[in-house]
């Protein structure tokens, strides 16, 4: 349960952080505000998951040393909290999908990644709101209302750019080619997801592959874009084996708390 909750939190936090990199740099004011709003939703969702993960951790501390062993984290005296989970873990202790940690790229990459992830989260949270675990169910119910907005916003941009100019169409094709090898990981279950599925907490993510492809295909058809042929998929994020990009992201995100532990402003 802790492992699964941590994974859900990490996905939301890392994608939220990547999107927040657009704040002040968006292509125009309205879209700068939109992507910053989406980042805020995701970081809020991450907080809800982390708060629950922290409670689970505190209730059974010794059980999770195989997942978290960074010295900074283990030095925390007493109960850990949401911030310790976000700021004091090392890259190999993060359980997010590789897709969310890749650099934000150009607007086409950001939009395409958001669309892929939002569609996945929409399917996942729709089921998770009926999970046997009431706490996860409540977070999913709350998050889903926000994710529905994210799907529509990013889907409209996929269509607008794919069916736009020669340049925007070309950039979308490049973005899709770049991100496609990271999509498969969404549907390849990690051990903790198999355990969760066995105990009725949520479905095996393999189940979402077809509905996800169907929704993606529908938007791509309107956008005049092609789904790449199935190929080899990159994986490992859910096991803590990350791309180099996550390290740079964490260095920036965690710097202050690592240099000045407990700093507040």
């Amino acid at each position: 349960m802790f492992h699964l909750t941590l994974h859900l939190a990490d996905d939301a936090l890392i994608l939220g952080h990547r999107n927040s990199e657009w704040t002040g740099h968006g292509p125009n004011l309205e879209q700068d505000i939109a992507i910053s709003n989406i980042a805020l939703d995701q970081i809020g969702q991450a907080r809800n998951f982390y708060q629950y993960a922290a409670e689970l951790y505190n209730a059974n501390k010794d059980a999770y040393t195989n997942i978290i062993s960074s010295p900074a984290f283990l030095q925390v005296i007493g109960s850990i909290d949401e911030d310790d989970l976000a700021y004091l873990r090392d890259a190999m202790e993060f359980r997010n999908h590789l897709l969310v940690e890749l650099n934000k790229g150009d607007w086409a990459v950001t939009i395409t990644r958001q669309f892929f992830m939002s569609l996945y989260q929409q399917l996942l949270y729709t089921d998770l709101q009926y999970s046997a675990d009431k706490r996860l169910a409540a977070i999913a119910e709350k998050s889903l209302k926000e994710v529905n907005y994210h799907v529509r916003w990013s889907g409209e941009w996929v269509i607008r750019l794919g069916d736009g100019t020669e340049e925007s169409h070309h950039r979308m094709e490049t973005a899709i080619d770049q991100l496609w090898p990271y999509v498969g990981e969404l549907f390849i279950p990690a051990d903790f997801q198999l355990e969760a599925a066995a105990s009725g907490l949520l479905k095996n993510p393999e189940y979402y592959r077809e509905p996800w492809l169907e929704k993606t295909r529908a938007a791509f058809e309107q956008a005049g874009l092609m789904i790449p042929a199935p190929n080899w998929y990159q994986k490992g994020g859910k096991q803590g084996i990350h791309t180099e990009h996550l390290g740079y992201l964490l260095a920036e995100m965690q710097y202050l708390q690592r240099s000045h532990p407990g700093a507040q402003w």
């Binding site: 309205e30 505000i33 939109a34 709003n37 939703d41 907005y149 916003w153």
Partner: peptide, 13 residues
Amino acid sequence: RISEFGSTACKAL
């Protein structure tokens, strides 16, 4: 509608 996302999370422009 100018944008589905406004000055705060709960508002559209």
